[in-house]
C-alpha cells in the first residue's frame, strides 16, 4: 500500500480518483468449469478492494505476475546477484507463448469478509490469454488492475430490472442481480446462448428452464436472490428456441404502461444482440442501458483503442457531426442505449 499512497502524492486535489484503481496481486480461490469453454474464476484479494459496482471490470494479467521474468520487478525490488556469476536472464518473450497485454473481464460478483475481498470473473477460452487462465488452480497467483470503468445506474424512480445477457455478456448481469437484490428491485433474468453446452450459468437441479419462455427459478445465479429467469438457445437445446429478444418481448408486451415506465432493460452480449435488445426496449418505451465491449490495451483511457460511437450530447463541444468516439474503458463500458450510434 505504501507505493499506492506515494503515487497519490503526485495527484492534485481537483482530480477525482474515486474509486481508486490499483494493481494488486490475487490468489485463485477456485477456477471451476461452468460449461464448455467457460470457467468461473474466484480471486482472493488481500485487504479491502476498492469499492466496485456492476458494469465495472478488471484488467487481468494472463501470465504469471511480473511477466514470468521476475516477480521482483513488479514489487519494485532489486535483483541481487554475485558479481562473479553473471545473472541468468530468462527471455520470456522468446521461450513462452503468453499473452502480453492484460485482458478485460467484467465483475461477475464480489464479497467481503474479515480477511479480504473476493471477486468473480467468468472467462471463455478463446485465445492465448484465456488458455492460460483455464489452467489456473486454487492457490495460483495472478495480478490485476482495477476496478475500471463506469457502472450500471439504478435510477430512484425505477424498480423493475430486466437483465439480458448473452454468451460472455452474462457475468455483469450476475453481479447486477446481486446489487439489485440489495437495492430491493424486482428482477427477471434473460439468458441467451447459441446452444445448451455454451450456456454459462448454473441450472438448478429439477428446475428445467421453461421451453415456452416463462420465467422460472431455474438459474441459480438469479434464483439465489429469488429472481426468475428465462433461458433461450438458438437451437432450442435448452429453454425457449430463439434469440434472447424472443424471450424478452412477451414480457415487455405483458407489462402495463405504468410498469414499463418503472422498468429498465440492462443488456450485455454480442453487438447484434445488444442492438436488437435496445431497439426492442425503445419500441416498448423502456429505458435501456448497454454494457459495450471493444478490444482494448490499457483499460485506463490512454491507448485510445476501445472506441465506441456515441451520439453527441447536449453540452458536448469541439466536434462536428452527430457522433463522436468515446472510450469503452473510461467513458463506459455502460452507456444509455439511445446514445449509442449503432453501426
Amino acid at each position: 500500500m505504501g507505493a499506492i499512497m506515494s503515487a497519490m502524492g503526485s495527484l492534485p486535489a481537483n482530480v477525482s480518483t474515486i474509486p481508486m484503481r490499483c494493481l494488486v496481486g490475487a490468489t485463485v480461490v477456485f477456477n471451476e468449469p461452468i460449461c464448455r469453454e467457460h470457467f468461473r474464476l474466484r480471486l482472493g484479494l488481500p485487504g479491502r478492494f476498492s469499492p466496485t459496482k456492476p458494469g465495472q471490470f478488471v484488467q487481468l494479467g494472463c501470465r504469471p505476475p511480473g511477466g514470468g521474468q521476475n516477480q521482483e520487478a513488479l514489487l519494485g525490488q532489486c535483483i541481487e546477484w554475485d558479481t562473479a556469476i553473471p545473472p541468468k536472464l530468462t527471455q520470456t518473450e522468446l521461450c513462452e507463448e503468453l499473452a502480453l497485454l492484460r485482458r478485460p473481464f467484467s465483475l461477475a460478483g464480489r464479497g467481503d469478509n474479515a480477511t479480504g475481498t473476493w471477486i468473480d470473473v467468468i472467462h471463455r477460452v478463446v485465445g492465448t490469454g484465456t488458455q492460460w487462465l483455464a489452467h489456473l488452480a486454487a492457490g495460483d497467483r495472478v495480478d490485476l488492475i482495477g476496478p475500471l470503468g463506469n457502472q450500471f445506474e439504478l435510477p430512484d424512480d425505477k424498480s423493475l430490472g430486466l437483465l439480458v445477457g448473452g454468451g460472455v455478456g452474462l457475468p455483469p448481469m450476475f453481479y447486477l442481480a446481486q446489487w439489485m437484490h440489495q437495492a430491493g428491485w424486482d428482477v427477471v433474468g434473460f439468458v441467451g446462448a447459441t446452444t445448451r453446452d455454451l450456456l454459462a450459468v448454473t441450472c438448478n437441479s429439477g428446475q428445467e428452464p421453461d421451453p415456452g419462455g416463462l420465467p422460472t427459478h431455474c438459474i441459480e445465479e438469479f434464483s439465489q436472490f429469488n429472481f426468475p429467469a428465462v433461458v433461450t438457445t438458438d437451437d432450442g437445446s435448452q429453454g425457449l428456441m430463439g434469440r434472447v429478444t424472443d424471450g424478452l418481448e412477451p414480457l415487455l408486451r405483458g407489462l402495463s404502461v405504468p410498469r414499463r415506465r418503472q422498468a429498465v432493460v440492462f443488456v450485455c452480449g454480442p453487438q447484434a444482440m445488444m442492438q436488437a435488445t435496445a431497439h426492442l426496449a425503445q419500441a416498448y418505451g423502456v429505458d435501456c442501458q448497454v454494457c459495450l465491449e471493444q478490444a482494448m490495451a490499457c483499460g485506463m483511457g490512454t491507448c485510445q483503442s476501445c472506441v465506441v460511437k456515441i451520439h453527441d450530447q447536449p453540452g458536448d463541444i469541439g466536434e462536428t457531426g452527430d457522433w463522436r468516439y468515446k472510450l469503452a474503458c473510461t467513458d463506459g463500458p455502460v452507456f444509455n442505449a439511445q446514445d449509442v450510434a449503432w453501426a
Binding site: A3, A7, S10, M300, G301, T302
Partner: peptide, 12 residues
C-alpha cells in the same frame, strides 16, 4: 494520455 490518467498507479 495527456497527464494524470495513470496517477493512481504510477507516481508521476
Amino acid at each position: 494520455g495527456y497527464c494524470f490518467e495513470y496517477a493512481d498507479l504510477l507516481d508521476l
